[in-house]
Design a protein around this nucleic acid. Sequence first.
DNA 1: CATCGCCGATACGATTCGTTACATTGCGCC
DNA 2: GGCGCAATGTAACGAATCGTATCGGCGATG
Lengths: 237, 237
Amino acid sequence: MSASRDEIHILEDDPLVAGTVARALEEYGFATRWFRTAGELLAAAARHPPPLVVVDLGLPDRDGMDVVRELHQTADCGVLILTGRDIVSDRVLGLELGADDYVVKPFEPRELVARIRSILRRRAHPATGGAAHRVAVFEDWRYDPGSFTLIAGDGAEEILGAAEARLLLCFLEKPNRVLSREQLAGTADLAPFDRSIDVRVSRLRKRLNDDSQSPHLIKTVYGAGYVLSVGVRWETG
Amino acid sequence: MSASRDEIHILEDDPLVAGTVARALEEYGFATRWFRTAGELLAAAARHPPPLVVVDLGLPDRDGMDVVRELHQTADCGVLILTGRDIVSDRVLGLELGADDYVVKPFEPRELVARIRSILRRRAHPATGGAAHRVAVFEDWRYDPGSFTLIAGDGAEEILGAAEARLLLCFLEKPNRVLSREQLAGTADLAPFDRSIDVRVSRLRKRLNDDSQSPHLIKTVYGAGYVLSVGVRWETG
DNA sequence: CATCGCCGATACGATTCGTTACATTGCGCC
DNA sequence: GGCGCAATGTAACGAATCGTATCGGCGATG
């Protein structure tokens, strides 16, 4: 019962399709509940709005578009249209009526789940537009690329400058890979004897307490570039 | 000029495709701006985030997925991937990285516009919808943006001026994020050597008893802007 | 009209960053 | 190993960025 709060509602008259959708979602950890008619769904959604409704447009008792419109007005829940009607005007109409997405059958389960997750994420964090607040964790360091904040193991916080922040983010996005100076600078045309990257790396090393004689974090690859040689885990939330 | 606030940014290396997309959007009343390389787009978005970016994945200078990830982390704007790569794993990855939608070429202009409108609508709604009386609580401060009233921990109340109030609200709405001077000023075109934001920040710091030598609330990000480094809770009622 | 508070502009000192110069290291060759 | 050349590390310096004291304009207020 209270679990019904997180149930994704499926409105679909064909039991076969409904089963396929339900199985796809449940395989990825979602709880589902099947409604055969628009009336039942709207009644349930009015009493207890689900986080998301997957709507088929070809219904026996009522036009699916009406359902989308009414859901958007009464219940405050995500709406994903999943239908065989592959007509541009339908897509436009559905989206204009407030649907969050429009997927055409036959659908790919993984993509459907990704789109549903995207909708749920945005609805859960409206302030950030669903931007997951990600923090990189490596060794005993933590780095928040949103606020350029580097946190040491003892909890000491430091704000990096823009240049150092971009450099560190470059490394953290592609750890254990050799990165050329062009990649680290973020521009294709570096002056042939530009040493600014080297200096930035030197300063970043100092900030990370990395001895440049025998670095264990940022290692030099002679003639190629640099590597961040450490496992990086991205924490969300 | 000030209209640039609503410009949709298009990241696309092929001028032909970029022109097609731009014309489609402009026909429906959107202002657009074209970027040929990821570097240019990211630089512009960091200074003044557009409401939405349309990203092509096949870029010369950088992987499009990296752009999506970085946009999602640093700028706070909508992202729509528009690409020829019709691979399920790409779609899933793009959506997981924070893209709001994924459209495959060749695209139908009307549908593209409908999807863009849907994204913009969702992003605009939570901000404007609630006219509720909100109060921000951070550290031992409380701030009422409706009456420009700042209340200290000991109960002392102060009325902020209009400029300081706008600035503080800016910070409180996006805490723990680096905000550029353009964002804090609320305009896209700041004079290159305009110091007014710095002065406003300095005054706001003084009012919040924040020592600028080692600030714990509003921290300076050299070369980028400022960040409010504290948790903010919004009380309603 | 005088006063007051708020705000933006300016100027000057303080801080950080990119550049340069030099020391050091790595690699190939004999 | 010894030598030469190219690549890298970084201290030091000048340039860019930032903090804020100060001043003047402007509207509100008495």
